Computed example of a mutant assay.
Amino acid sequence: MPVSTRQGSARARGAAAVSGWLVAGCAHAPSVNVLGAYFPDWLFCIVAGVVLTVAVYRVLARLSGGGAGGGAGGRGFGPPAVVYPTLVVLLASIAWLIFFQQ
């Protein structure tokens, strides 16, 4: 079934509009200048997420009364292989929203 030129041009305009909308996020490079070298913002957010997760782990380990081996997992905090990476992502996302959202 042939497509009329009117439908084809409407599709082309729609595709161009969607493409323009998708690349609009590329207008600003998310990077930070550190001593002349540019580093991506997400790198700093991941580091902040890991550091804050270690701090949360230490606080929970101290509150549960266990040592570094017992940790927060002793009181039903959940499987550490799931909880701590999720906490890193959560804290990194919060750091992104606080420091780098423009």
Rank of each mutant, 00 (worst) to 15 (best):
A17Q: 13
N33Q: 04
G36M: 02
A95G: 08
Y84E: 03
P30Y: 01
P79M: 07
A55Y: 12
G67V: 02
L35V: 07
V23H: 08
A27G: 08
Y84W: 15
F44I: 10
L87A: 09
G76S: 13
A17Y: 10
L87D: 02
I46P: 00
W21Q: 05
V23Q: 11
A92H: 09
R58A: 15
A29M: 03
R6Y: 03
Q102T: 09
G66C: 04
D41E: 12
G66H: 09
D41V: 13
G69H: 09
V3F: 13
V32W: 02
P79G: 14
A12F: 11
L90Q: 04
R13I: 14
G69K: 10
F39M: 07
R6F: 05
I98W: 02
W96V: 06
S9N: 09
V59E: 08
C26K: 07
G74C: 11
A15M: 08
R62M: 10
P79S: 14
F39C: 03
A15S: 07
A61G: 14
S64E: 10
A17R: 13
H28F: 05
Y38I: 02
F99W: 15
V50W: 02
L52N: 04
S4L: 09
A27N: 05
R6A: 06
R6V: 11
A37W: 04
S4G: 15
C45F: 01
A81M: 01
A55E: 13
I46A: 09
F99C: 13
A24L: 06
I98L: 10
G20P: 05
V82F: 12
T53C: 03
A48C: 08
V83Y: 02
V32G: 02
Y38R: 08
G67P: 03
A15V: 06
A24C: 06
V83W: 06
W21H: 03
G36E: 04
V32M: 08
V47C: 01
L43Q: 03
R75E: 15
V3C: 08
G76R: 15
G65K: 11
Y84F: 14
L91M: 10
Y84H: 06
L90F: 14
L52S: 11
A15P: 00
A55W: 14
F39Y: 12
S4D: 14
L97V: 02
G20H: 02
G20C: 04
V47L: 06
R6N: 02
G65W: 07
